[in-house]
């Protein structure tokens, strides 16, 4: 099946390539073209008109007056090297901005997604175990209600009540401005304080869906003959609950986890904006607002690559984790 791995890996590169090309095309479609804004800004800064083009070329790795195919090759080559030019609004290399932003976003998304799965699986399993009980019905109703609340509604409410009204949590930033980043207790506490509300609001709404999925899976697994046969074989309840029921109910959720991880990376555009939390999504949005196209494309590409890699890992590992699937036929989507 080595062939499959090669094909699958090639597809990752192909996808990234296509998306990168797409961003190149989109920049050309943007109102006023990619360089108008920059040209205006540079002129305003007092750069002589004769030097503007050279400066732009320097900043964006693209010759504004070169033919389109030439611009495209330049763009692709520098993007491949991780060089997205310089952010217009921040005056820093895009790569540097992205590198500073990525850890915060990954932190928020990873922690909240893990929490969603932990709570979802736990609740769903308990519900399935007591299927039809009052607890089951109450949690199902709660899950459905939670699913109907967009995370940004929770975010705004949390910010409004807990941060502004009660002032229990900070309203912006990733850590206190007076705290030096480093492995100190002070910094960790400050970072957690700042991340608490974003993580909370990004977690709550997602639990419902996972709990319902886990409940459905578990009930289906419980109805299988092999669970009954295991009971007849005299296996202990705990062994059956973990290795025969939970394992088979959780496995199908695994690809969902990685996909959700990538998908939720995109959602940070809204989340980080609400909490003024300077991560990837925050910069993507502020780049849009200030017409900072290099930064916009840089953050967009990074989010895309993260999603592509997430799907890739899901595809490759699912067959290892679930023996029923053999490579190549896995449907990670």
């Amino acid at each position: 099946m080595g062939n499959y791995y090669i094909r699958r890996t090639a597809r990752v590169f192909a996808t990234v390539f296509i998306v990168t090309s797409l961003t190149f095309g989109l920049i050309r479609l943007l109102p006023g073209g990619p360089f108008t804004q920059l040209r205006v800004r540079l002129l305003r800064q007092g750069v002589p008109a004769s030097e503007v083009d050279a400066r732009i070329a320097n900043l964006q790795n693209i010759q504004p007056d070169a033919p389109l195919w030439r611009q495209y090759i330049d763009y692709m080559l520098s993007a491949m090297q991780g060089d997205f030019g310089e952010s217009i609004s921040l005056g820093k290399p895009v790569a540097q901005v992205v590198a500073e932003a990525v850890p915060w976003t990954v932190f928020i998304v990873l922690v909240s997604t893990v929490l969603i799965f932990l709570f979802g699986i736990l609740l769903g399993a308990i519900q399935a175990y007591w299927e039809g009980s009052r607890f089951d019905k109450a949690i199902s109703a709660l899950s459905i209600s939670l699913m109907s609340i967009p995370f940004y509604v929770i975010a705004v409410l949390a910010l409004f009540i807990l941060a502004y009204q009660f002032q229990w949590f900070p309203t912006a930033g990733t850590h206190g401005t007076d705290v030096e980043p480093g492995l100190t207790l002070e910094f960790l506490v400050s970072a957690l304080e700042h991340a608490a509300l974003p993580i909370f609001s990004y977690t709550i709404g997602g639990i419902g869906g996972q709990a319902l999925a886990m409940r459905g899976n578990s009930i289906q697994v419980l109805g299988n003959d092999y669970v009954e046969v295991a009971r007849l074989r005299g296996l202990a309840d705990r062994r059956i609950a973990t290795w025969y029921v939970a394992r088979n109910a959780i496995l199908p959720l695994y690809t969902g986890f990685l996909l959700l991880l990538g998908f939720r990376l995109g959602g940070t555009v809204i989340l980080e904006q609400i909490f003024s939390y300077p991560g990837l999504g925050y910069y993507l949005w502020s780049a849009l607002e200030s017409n900072d196209y290099p930064l916009m494309m840089g953050t967009f590409l990074v989010i895309t690559v993260a999603l592509v890699i997430g799907v890739y890992i899901a595809d490759l590992t699912y067959s290892k984790i679930d023996p029923r699937i053999s490579q190549g036929e896995s449907d990670a989507y």
């Binding site: 597809r11 192909a14 996808t15 296509i18 998306v19 797409l22 961003t23 989109l26 479609l29 943007l30 109102p31 990538g262 998908f263 990376l265 995109g266 959602g267 555009v269 809204i270 999504g281 993507l284 949005w285 849009l288 916009m296 953050t299 967009f300 989010i303 895309t304 999603l307 592509v308 799907v311 989507y333």
Partner: peptide, 23 residues
């Protein structure tokens, strides 16, 4: 393959960029 590529593009950021582009 086409679907796979489309699926790999993060929805919300893509929509944002498209929205700004096409208004």
């Amino acid at each position: 393959s086409f679907s796979d590529v489309m699926m790999a593009i993060p929805g919300l950021p893509l929509v944002i960029i498209l929205a700004v582009t096409f208004n």
